[in-house]
């Protein structure tokens, strides 16, 4: 009986505390991803960043005035492009991958009048939901022969385009991604329960996007996410 009473009291206390110190919100913005791997063996090829979008639902719980527990489940696009250069300029292979991501961390907050700035370290888990691949490459069966000056012919290959959904392979693709994140955030108190938020966060994957058994060379996502949004505190002012 005493145990039930104790649990009930804790529950009520938690409810009150949660109500008093919790913030919910919505945020969106842009992502910029770098595919961290090594392609130095691939001739006339460069890896370029790819930009995407981000949407998230931030949630904060205050432990102290300067310390919050945070999470922000969201969707983030992490893409990259392998672009050919020199004589192969115009050929490319571009990937846009969408991840469902759940970071869990803390927020170290400094308040100054209506403004709060924070440092936000966290760890995260992501799941690779879908991918799109688009590209252009030489078609080995489609070319024009050019007569050379010394009787030797050369070929000008015509380019073929491709575009479609990425086909996942369980042997190849590591769809779960784990890593850490660090960010700088700011909140501006508009009025009442409402806050305007902005953040820049860096996500570093610690797991390769390709399984080790099929790729001797790992490939990690490194993603900047820039977001703005709004938060609503559940405090009774």
């Amino acid at each position: 009986m005493n145990r039930k009473l104790f649990c009930c009291c804790i529950f009520l206390l938690l409810q009150t505390t949660l109500f008093a110190q919790t913030s919910l919100g919505v945020e969106g913005g842009l992502s910029s991803n770098r595919y961290q791997t090594n392609i130095t063996n691939r001739a006339s090829t460069v890896l370029t960043r790819s930009n995407g979008v981000y949407v998230g639902l931030p949630f904060r719980y205050a432990v102290r005035r300067w310390l919050y527990l945070t999470t922000a489940p969201g969707l983030v696009q992490k893409g990259y492009s392998m672009d050919r250069t020199d004589p192969f300029y115009g050929e490319f292979d571009r990937h846009v991958n969408t991840y469902l991501q759940l970071p869990v961390g803390v927020s170290l907050v400094y308040s100054w009048r209506r403004l709060r700035v924070s440092l936000d370290p966290s760890i995260y888990a992501g799941y690779w939901l879908s991918g799109r691949v688009k590209g252009r490459t030489a078609n080995i069966f489609d070319f024009t022969e050019n007569p050379g000056t010394n009787g030797q012919q050369s070929e000008s290959f015509h380019l073929s385009d491709y575009s479609g959904n990425y086909s996942f392979l369980s042997r190849r693709d590591n769809r779960w991604e784990f890593g850490w994140s660090l960010g700088l955030g700011s909140c501006y108190h508009l009025s009442g329960h409402y806050w305007l938020t902005g953040a820049a966060r860096w996500y570093q994957a610690m797991t390769s996007q390709e399984k080790k058994a099929v790729s001797a060379i790992p490939a990690y996502n490194q993603t900047w996410v820039f977001s703005i949004g709004g938060m609503w505190t559940l405090d009774k002012l």
């Binding site: 392609i39 691949v133 078609n139 069966f141 073929s160 491709y162």
Partner: peptide
């Protein structure tokens, strides 16, 4: 036809029509 698109053993471009 398809070609290698990365250094991974199973990195391929999508299939492209051969005609």
């Amino acid at each position: 036809t398809r070609y290698k698109s990365g250094n991974g053993r199973l990195d391929h471009t999508p299939w492209i029509e051969a005609s």
